[in-house]
Design a protein around this nucleic acid. Structure first.
Length: 876
RNA sequence: GGGAGCAUAGCUCAGUUGGUUAGAGCACUUGCCUUACAAGCAAGGGGUCACAGGUUCGAGUCCUGUUGUUCCCACCA
């Protein structure tokens, strides 16, 4: 796939990514292996209308990391992709398109309209697929599904009929949320409340047989034509004697009663409420309780109908204006107060919702909600992070029946026919019902309404596996393991999958729900079209590479928390990809120098004969392997990424590679690099695969390599401690060099070791130390022997280091430096001593912590001793 | 009105069951083109972990309260 020679100094993602993706696809690496335990993820299906945005990028990166990790761990990994027909959103787009041709959907007719919609799907539905591939998702594209494909349609019909037979679906005339623009009902969860300015109109209603007026405060005077009563609280001293009397609705002139109902809040407004059952949810309920008539005064577009007399045909807002003018003219308005209030709007088009009485289909939610709550309470389904279960419970506990019918054409038609002859409702999975099942009449009306999009996506975890057919795949790959999604669609989607699955599959659809936050802009604002602050993931991928984008939205983030998007962060991740690229180039160089690239199997014997630095890096690597596995199993991707970043950059590149420049041993170097690449592959799939293909001795692809396994054999605390000494020493010398401002000049140093171990380590790693700290020669001093020379000194817990030089630091400056260090060390020592002399600490703290405190104490004592000597000498 | 999150370096964020001297990236200062990498290397500065109490041998972490902030749910009087 690539030439080993002449590798560019800079990693080029543009040349790499598409080629690598093609390589994976052609080799069918995304398909489940069929071997090993099954692991299933279903992709939240993006809308066919949509383009890839940062939310998708995040959601799918998380899923891809899990997928690649599990695949490398030997699972038969199935990640099912697909798209959602998004009935209301897509239908709106097509109507928009028609409008440009001066057509309405009615003019076009249902069949032609649907033809258009399918054309739209064919045209744009694959767009997002291409975009997801750019991101590097390793889902099984052969399993790709669509919520409106024939299998999903079968599933929807089966589910509907099943629930209907169990009396869990019913048809009823209720007040529902109506969007006057989309011209359809929508469910409670599809309503957004927005704060909008409005007015409180105080209107006089004249009592019959009296000159007295009752003042009613309302924000919607235009609904007066639908008034059927005034209501007061029966405990309200001011009004309770009025209950039973009648008033006249101004302008309208109709008589309506005054009723008592405890729903009325005495404190709010004037304490009198006008009851308009057809246009308000609460009024509807009050009306039901008091057996009041229902006067619907608006049409489907929320224009006043014939009941509105002269206002008939006007829109809600126009009518309000005209009616208020009329009321003012006739002195019916006492006052008008401005206020801000929350108004329900359509989540798709932001039009103000009009509550509307209509006949719709509903799912009974009580039992389903109870089951769902139980499954989360019993930990059959676990939210990650856990706090989201509270939100889920609260929502489920207060849920009302779910309105599932939509007055749209693009969607699953409700499988129902009505007999005009006997009134029978026929619910059937059959395509063509021609005769009534009860009276055999052929006068049947077909139900035109379609189902809420979420009704079909609620079945997604099992419909994509073949349900309602009892397929082998369904038996093997259901339930799924984890569902990855943002907290913003827990109610829309997650909840629906949970109860649908519990009801029909008798099992939870997944074990974990991994919740992530929103990707916001750099100022913390939600990315939105209207603000124009959206960041296009494809542009970022183009510029920095998919690996960089992926890593930047994972690194240092935690589940459920929002994050801000910064190009600078992507840039630093791009640099990280380049760093690994160059580390690999270095290893490759070593290999070609040695003309040897055999793999090694590491045994105990070999480990014992290895150099200290090799034992150290292997120990560190295996600790990291253990931690990464642990973090990934807990879905702590952000922490895992951080650890990898630090290990690769700070330990492997900055120290081990430097060490290895002095060594001829390359087996361990190769071994560590290969393991690093495997650990990193789920996060940065492209660059790791590219390197694997270029450098690896193995012929296969890294995507199907085994994920590194922790082996305690490699853990070597001694080597870690020794390298720690070495690093501390090198850093001290470097620090002193910097202070002395001696550039890159090689120096001679004189050293007094703090203890035997330090002496041994530094003696045996002499070459490494010299190279890393730019030292010409090291002269070892005997402990306690005073060293008289014009030099500056650095002190740490392991050694005292002198550098003779002409550019001596000012004596007082040097003294101040040492004094400052002494003060800090003394304070720390005091702390450690206090802790160790504390009886309760000694008796209650774990041994590990006590031992740690002892070590700290010893190190500090050694350091302080040396510092004091140096200070004494300076002040002499 | 009910609930939840967040508050840690100049900025953006990590910090998993409480345990040595609180971390990273970016930005900043200084010196280096040291043969993998200037998209780099090395050294450094910068934090009362919002505030006030409490529990504990020990609190950024747990509890209570306060302040600020964001979000969710409910709600067209």
């Amino acid at each position: 796939m690539c030439e080993k020679e002449n590798l560019d100094k800079t990693y080029n993602h543009t040349e790499t990514e598409d080629e690598i993706y093609k390589f994976w696809e052609e080799n069918n690496y995304f398909k489940p292996s069929g071997v090993g335990e099954k692991y299933t993820i279903v992709m939240p299906p993006p809308n066919i209308t949509g383009n890839l945005h940062m939310g998708h990028a995040l959601d799918n990166t998380i899923q891809d990391i899990i997928t690649r990790y599990k695949r490398m761990c030997g699972y038969s990994m199935l990640w099912v992709p697909g798209t959602d027909h998004a009935s209301i959103a897509t239908e709106a787009k097509i109507i928009e398109e028609l409008r440009k041709e001066n057509l309405t959907k009615e003019q076009l007719g249902r069949n032609e309209f649907l033809k258009r919609a399918w054309e739209w799907k064919e045209k744009y539905g694959s767009n997002i697929k291409k975009q997801l591939k750019k991101l590097g998702v390793s889902c099984d594209w052969e399993h790709e599904r669509f919520t409106l494909d024939s299998g999903c349609t079968e599933a929807v019909k089966e589910f509907f009929v099943n629930l209907y037979k169990k009396n869990m679906i019913y048809r009823g005339e209720k007040i529902i949320n109506w969007c006057p623009k989309c011209l359809t009902s929508i469910s409670d969860s599809e309503v957004n409340f927005e704060e909008k300015p409005g007015c409180f109109y105080y209107i006089k209603y004249k009592l019959i047989n009296s000159e007295e007026n009752i003042i009613v405060a309302t924000t919607r005077p235009e609904t007066m034509f639908g008034d059927v009563a005034l209501a007061v609280n029966p405990d309200d001293e001011r009004y309770k004697n009025l209950i039973g009397q009648e008033v006249i609705v101004p302008i309208v002139g109709r008589k309506i009663p005054i009723i008592g109902d405890s729903y009325v809040d005495i404190e709010l407004g004037t304490g009198v409420l006008k009851i308009t059952p057809a246009h308000d949810f609460n009024d509807f309920e009050v009306g039901q309780r008091h057996n009041l008539p229902i006067l619907n005064i608006m049409d489907e577009k929320a224009c006043i109908n014939e009941l509105g007399g002269e206002y008939s045909g006007l829109s809600r807002t126009e009518a309000r204006k005209k009616i208020v003018e009329n009321l003012q003219k006739n002195n019916y308005i006492l006052k008008i107060e401005e206020l801000k209030h929350n108004v329900g709007t359509c989540y798709r088009c932001s039009t103000v919702i009009e509550p509307r009485i209509s006949t719709q289909w509903f799912v009974k939610m009580k039992k389903l909600a109870e089951m769902s709550i139980n499954s989360v309470q019993n930990d059959e389904i676990k939210f990650v992070p856990k706090r989201f279960d509270k939100i889920f419970f609260h929502w489920m506990e207060n849920i009302k029946d779910w309105c599932i019918s939509r007055q749209l054409w693009w969607g699953h038609r409700i499988p129902v026919w009505y007999c005009e002859n006997c009134g029978e409702i026929i619910v059937s999975k059959e395509e063509n019902i021609t005769h009534c099942t009860k009276c055999n009449s052929d006068k049947l009306l077909i139900e035109h309404d379609t189902l809420d999009t979420w009704f079909s996506s609620g079945l997604w975890p099992f419909s994509v596996l073949g349900w309602p057919e009892n397929t082998q795949e369904l038996r093997e790959y259901f339930p799924t393991k984890v569902l990855v999604t943002g907290y913003d669609i827990i109610f829309f989607w997650v909840a629906k999958m949970i109860f649908s699955s519990l009801e029909i599959m008798k099992k939870p659809p997944f074990e974990h729900v991994l919740i992530h936050g929103l990707v916001r802009d750099s100022q913390g604002r939600k990315m939105s079209k209207s603000l124009g602050n959206g960041v296009d993931p494809l542009e970022i991928i183009d510029k920095y590479g998919a690996d960089a984008l992926r890593f930047s939205i994972i690194l240092g983030t935690s589940p459920g928390n929002d994050m801000r998007f910064y190009a600078e962060k992507v840039e630093s991740c791009r640099n990280f990809a380049n760093k690994i690229w160059n580390a690999a180039r270095f290893v490759n160089l070593k290999i070609s120098e040695k003309k040897c690239n055999q793999k090694i199997t590491i045994s105990k014997d070999i480990i014992q004969n290895m150099s200290r630095t090799d034992r150290w890096i292997l120990s560190r690597l295996h600790k990291i392997i253990q931690e990464i596995r642990c973090d990934l199993d807990k879905f702590e991707l952000g922490i895992a990424a951080q650890k990898l970043y630090n290990f690769i950059w700070d330990e492997f590149c900055d120290w081990y590679i430097e060490f290895s420049k002095l060594s001829n041993e390359i087996c361990i170097l190769i071994y560590v690099l290969e393991n690093i690449l495997k650990l990193l592959h789920p996060f940065m799939p492209f660059v790791t695969e590219k390197i694997w293909q270029c450098f690896s001795t193995s012929k296969d692809a890294i995507i199907i390599e085994k994920f590194p396994k922790f082996e305690s054999l490699y853990i070597n605390e001694e080597a870690e401690r020794e390298i720690e000494i070495l690093m501390t020493f090198v850093k001290s010398v470097r620090n002193l060099r910097r202070e002395l401002n001696i550039g890159n000049k090689k120096v001679d140093i004189y050293v007094e070791y703090g203890n035997q171990e330090a002496g041994n380590v530094l003696a045996t790693c002499c070459e490494e130390v010299k190279k890393l700290a730019c030292i010409e020669s090291i002269h070892v001093l005997k402990p306690g022997v005073s060293f008289d020379c014009e030099c500056s000194v650095a002190v740490n817990e392991y050694a005292k280091i002198y550098i003779p030089t002409e550019n001596l630091i000012d004596k007082s400056q040097e003294l101040a430096k040492l004094q400052k260090e002494l003060d800090v060390s003394r304070a720390q020592l005091d702390q450690a001593r206090a802790r160790l002399s504390n009886q309760e600490f000694m008796s209650k703290a774990p041994q590990k912590v006590i031992q740690g405190a002892r070590e700290v104490k010893e190190k500090l004592e050694s350091k302080i001793e040396k510092l004091l000597l140096s200070i004494n000498k300076l002040t002499k």
